[in-house]
Design a protein around this nucleic acid. Structure first.
Lengths: 133, 133
DNA sequence: CGGTATCCAGCCCGATACTG
DNA sequence: CAGTATCGGGCTGGATACCG
């Protein structure tokens, strides 16, 4: 068994950039990590993510939804209620995201001291999001 | 040993975004993958990377150099010769990059069929870059 | 060969105001 | 509450021309 994929560099570039494009927005990662800690309503996301305009938040959420990373559920109530949560695809993205985070923690000389290798986050009820100790 | 890092979401967001920022340029990934297959001269990079302007290429190379991912060596000759190559830090970035690529290959329904889990590429002489079979 | 200098178009994002 | 409409600024990246 080889240790690297037998695909062309071209495909690797394309695949990698496609994944990166999904995370390209200024707030995408923030929203994904937030929803990884549980379903939120629109206004909760607006408040819990630092200084973001409603327009930009809506854009970000719509893009992530279009890409299948998050799901949106609107309840036909008055006043309206809309809940956003991570899809299985969104959860799977936390794997690569953690790889990026650990890389920065290991090589970028600053706060954040991850040590153990791990694969991804899991939804509530399966495993805890943050500290386990 | 726990499976997730005991750091705050805030640090995870910051760390992840810092890594992402290094890859933010439109051509960064392309250049990193190219240099992963060997040292190149400026004009070789210019030619082997698809349709990129000299200005943008220089910007990209300078940014990657500033971030420590690639190194630049200029030879005092006439005509001038400048060679770019991946630093150890640059090589270590191929790990997270491969995670991103494999994620896209697995979830984004298109060409590229990686199967085995692996960690990162290695410089020539230690392991092959592409197909091993 | 390996760049700079200059100009410019497009896009992402924020501020503010308004709405079902 | 959960958006949309409108305006506008900043930054990235392309086209072209020039330089040591």
């Amino acid at each position: 068994m080889c240790a690297v994929p037998d695909v062309s560099d071209f495909e690797m570039v394309r695949g990698t950039r496609r994944a990166l494009t999904l995370l390209g927005g200024k707030w995408s990662v923030e929203v994904i990590y937030l929803l990884a800690s549980g379903t939120r309503r629109y206004s909760e996301v607006l408040y819990e993510v630092g200084e973001i305009s409603k327009k930009t938040l809506t854009q970000t959420l719509r893009a992530l939804e279009r890409d299948g990373l998050i799901s949106r559920r609107a309840y036909p109530e008055v006043p309206p209620r809309v809940e956003y949560s991570l899809t299985p695809l969104g959860w799977s993205m936390t794997g690569p995201l953690m790889a990026l985070y650990e890389w920065s923690a290991e090589h970028l000389t600053d706060g954040g001291r991850a040590r153990s290798g791990h694969r991804e986050m899991l939804p509530r009820g399966q495993r805890r999001l943050r500290s386990v100790a």
